[in-house]
């Protein structure tokens, strides 16, 4: 029997990401969460399995709510693997950089679709946990905005968590893309208009900006 290659495309602190052919005309991304050697094996297995399912569930819930995410193909909990659709396109990071300076219309359209997707996500009480322009893909063809990497996501209805989510994105955008303040503002405006709790989150964001991501533990 012939063997097929899977190519390591990303190595993170929590997981490795591989790309492999997946039947006719399809490619899959396989995300492997590592076992943590410092944790008790039985506990680790349970926690890892829960994280794997939680990540896949976020992808599916968003997809069902109309936010574009990679299709979940298969979950292999014993091996801590998620098989999902390989999305053809470019990351928003590359998209912005390759077009810099972007014309106003393109920038507005992109910002609006980001704002809308984040609004739906937060209305589902899904907090991404690692919002950056590298974790968003502009799909080839349909140009739809795809949110990826829910490895650090959590389910939370707290305004605080959602505000921190947006704050992380703001900081990431400032450091990776100069002159995108206007664009972030546009993301926020759309978010505020589309999300049910948008106003409260935006107000909280002001507070988070003043003190930073971490809450002060004392006083």
């Amino acid at each position: 029997m012939e063997t097929h290659e899977a190519i390591l495309i990303k190595q993170g602190a929590e997981a490795r990401v591989y790309k492999m052919p997946f039947g006719e005309g399809r490619c899959a991304i396989v995300k492997e969460r590592f076992k943590k050697a410092y944790r008790h094996p039985v506990l680790d297995e349970k926690l890892t399995a829960r994280r794997v399912i939680q990540e896949a569930r976020c992808l599916q819930r968003l997809r069902r709510a109309g936010v574009d995410t990679p299709t979940v193909y298969m979950v292999d909990t014993p091996n801590s693997l998620i098989y999902m659709e390989y999305v053809d396109g470019s990351s928003v990071r590359d998209y912005i950089n390759s077009r810099a300076p972007m014309n106003d219309d393109d920038e507005r359209l992109l910002a609006q679709s980001i704002g809308k997707s984040l609004a739906v996500m937060h209305d589902l009480d899904i907090v991404h946990g690692d919002l950056t322009t590298s974790n968003m893909i502009v799909r080839e063809g349909s140009q739809s905005l795809v949110l990826i990497d829910f490895g650090l996501s959590m389910v939370s209805s707290m305004v605080e968590d959602k505000a921190v989510d947006l704050y992380v994105l703001e900081r990431a955008m400032i450091s990776t893309h100069p002159d995108t303040e206007g664009m972030f503002q546009c993301i926020l405006d759309t978010y505020g208009k589309s999300s049910k709790g948008g106003k409260a989150v935006r107000k909280k964001l002001e507070e988070v900006r003043r003190r930073g991501r971490k809450r002060t533990a004392f006083g």
Partner: peptide, 24 residues
Amino acid sequence: VKLPPLFTPPTPDSPVPSVPFATP
């Protein structure tokens, strides 16, 4: 109809291989 291959994760003690294999 061909089935997509299964991914075989590298063993934890192996040095990080850049090209692991998928079983058909």
